[in-house]
Amino acid sequence: MEFSDNKAIYIQIAEHICEHIMLGTWKEEEKLPSVRELAVQLEVNPNTVMRTYDLLQQKEIIANKRGVGFFVTKDSLKQVQTYRKNIFLEDELPQVFRNIYLLDISLEELKKRYQDFVDENFN
């Protein structure tokens, strides 16, 4: 995994896990890699992964079964969508709107490009 400098690593790992849940790679009630396993896989400190898992537990996306490990929660997809949607709407969308305005991109062009993107990637 390539990390960027503009966001904390544990947040980037959380987004990575959320993406796996949204894509169905990790399904509801499925066991996640242990803290150590994921730390080795991502080449980060185990404390960073633990911080990620703590954040995702607070958001009710994963749960810890004592002595067994961390699992994706039953309502994880809904929780992930809510969590990611809030981040997008509050942090990313204002910058997108700024660029749309500054570049004088019409809503019609955006709509067409969005539909082309959906057609090419999800149909």
Rank of each mutant, 00 (worst) to 15 (best):
F70W: 07
N99H: 12
K78N: 13
E43G: 08
R98D: 13
N99C: 12
L42S: 01
K65M: 15
T52C: 05
R98N: 15
A63Y: 07
V44F: 03
I100P: 03
Y101S: 15
F97R: 12
N86Y: 15
I87L: 11
L102D: 13
L102M: 13
F88D: 01
Y83G: 03
E43I: 05
E90D: 10
T73F: 00
S76G: 00
I100E: 01
S106Y: 05
Y114D: 06
D91R: 09
E43Y: 04
D91T: 13
V49D: 03
L103Q: 10
T48A: 07
Y83H: 08
R66L: 14
T52N: 01
S106P: 04
L93M: 13
Y53W: 06
N86L: 11
I105C: 02
F70Y: 08
L93Q: 05
E109P: 00
V72R: 01
T48I: 05
Q115V: 11
Q79W: 06
L89T: 07
D54T: 15
N45E: 11
L56G: 01
E109M: 09
F71M: 01
E108A: 12
L103V: 11
Y114P: 00
V68D: 13
K85F: 15
D75Y: 09
R84G: 07
D104E: 13
R98F: 14
T52L: 02
K111G: 08
D54R: 11
D75S: 12
V80A: 00
E90F: 11
P94D: 07
L110S: 00
I61Y: 03
K85G: 12
L110K: 06
N99V: 13
L107H: 14
I87P: 01
R66C: 08
I62L: 04
T82C: 10
E43S: 12
I105R: 03
R113N: 07
Y53G: 04
R51D: 11
L93H: 06
F71V: 02
V49T: 02
R66G: 14
G69F: 05
D91V: 09
F70T: 01
T48F: 02
Q115S: 06
F88C: 03
I61W: 02
V68N: 10
R51V: 07
V96P: 00
L77W: 08
K111I: 14
R98I: 15
D75M: 15
D104W: 04
F97A: 15
T48H: 06
E109H: 07
I62A: 05
D104T: 12
R51Y: 08
V44G: 05
L77G: 09
T48V: 07
G69W: 02
Y53V: 00
I87K: 03
D91M: 10
N47K: 10
N47Q: 12
V68P: 02
P94N: 07
Q81P: 08
Y83Q: 04
G69S: 05
Q95F: 14
Y83I: 06
D104R: 08
L103Y: 07
D104I: 12
P94M: 06
R84F: 10
